[in-house]
Design a protein around this nucleic acid. Structure first.
Lengths: 181, 181
DNA sequence: GAAGTTTTCTAACATTAGTTAGATTTCAAA
DNA sequence: TTTGAAATCTAACTAATGTTAGAAAACTTC
């Protein structure tokens, strides 16, 4: 519900209705509506972080860095678009969350960012990403492109594997055509 | 205020305080709080659309398509990050806006998307973007990367011109290093 | 300065939400 | 069956919000 209607518009009565209890019964499990939000934000990051981490860890030891990056992209998109309402809820509600919650949550976002920092830095150190590339900026733009998919991806779109492969190809190979240089 | 605190959290009293009037006086100018939101969403898109359109139109007639794309990127980032609280407010509040407002607003978003569709398609037709590139997907990912900057861009970051140039270079040239193929 | 319009104000309403208190039910164990 | 804990309920409170009605002030124009 936080994903569809947002935190403020969703009432405890609504949530209770979905859980087949009355609003006050929620307080048996959560101490406040804000705590509910915080836990959902946390689950949202955890889902996507775990999915990406696991997918990369499960690769064969000798896999190229390009394959590792493409795998991470695919895992991120799959977790966000197919498996986790929590992650989408996180994206939509984070900016409007109370300052205190946002502050506490930031560490978890940073930890996920580290995951990508590591991935891209190793790829550059190994020479699979050019030395002139600003990997920090690359990471910010890439993650932006990935997170933003929740704004436009619909059930009628291409399969996620195809999208991941195309994005990876555009990035590593470049989009420039014959007239490029 | 819609940008910082979001639509629901911002009260008409708050807005009035900023405008040095009491809440009911707002109704002399707007018929409801929702209309206020709708107008702000519209301004947000208009600002960024106009900025990009104008920047591209002002280029010399013979400019390469790569330059045109880079110019559009720079204009988008400048409008979003430096000139328009409205655009940032749009991004943050769009998903939580009432369905009716979102529906009406969609046409304007599509119109901005057309602007980019055109830009990229011409570049591909001219051969400056490779024939194998899915320009539709490219546009979606690229605009995602651009819009998402509002999540992380801070005053202490690199100048926008540099960011635009680096992104354009990564896209057209690719990030692949020596070991790539 | 009077008349009329524009703008803002005060007062109040209706509704609603998150939350608390305390009673009641449900359920498992002895 | 009894007992005690776990889970949910009803009732009520408090506070706040968008909105309306109508009076007052501010400003413009003749």
């Amino acid at each position: 519900m936080f994903r569809r209607k947002g935190y403020d518009t969703t009432t405890l009565k609504d949530i209770g209705a979905l859980a087949k209890i009355r609003a006050p019964a929620i307080y048996y499990y959560f101490s406040s509506k804000e705590q509910l939000l915080e836990e959902i934000l946390n689950i949202g990051i955890a889902r996507i972080h775990d999915a990406v981490q696991e997918a990369v860890d499960n690769l064969a030891a000798g896999s190229s860095h390009r394959v590792r990056v493409e795998t991470a992209i695919r895992a991120h998109l799959t977790a966000l678009l197919q498996h986790s309402d929590y992650t989408a809820a996180n994206i939509i509600n984070y900016n409007l969350a109370p300052r205190a919650i946002r502050a506490r949550h930031l560490a978890r976002r940073e930890s996920y960012a580290d995951c990508w920092r590591d991935l891209l830095q190793r790829a550059q150190d190994a020479g699979e990403i050019g030395p002139s590339v600003d990997v920090n900026l690359l990471r910010l733009f890439l993650l932006g492109a990935l997170f933003w998919t929740h704004e436009w991806y619909g059930k009628d779109q291409e399969p996620i594997e195809v999208m991941a492969e195309k994005l990876s190809a555009m990035l590593f190979g470049g989009i420039g055509g014959r007239l490029q240089e």
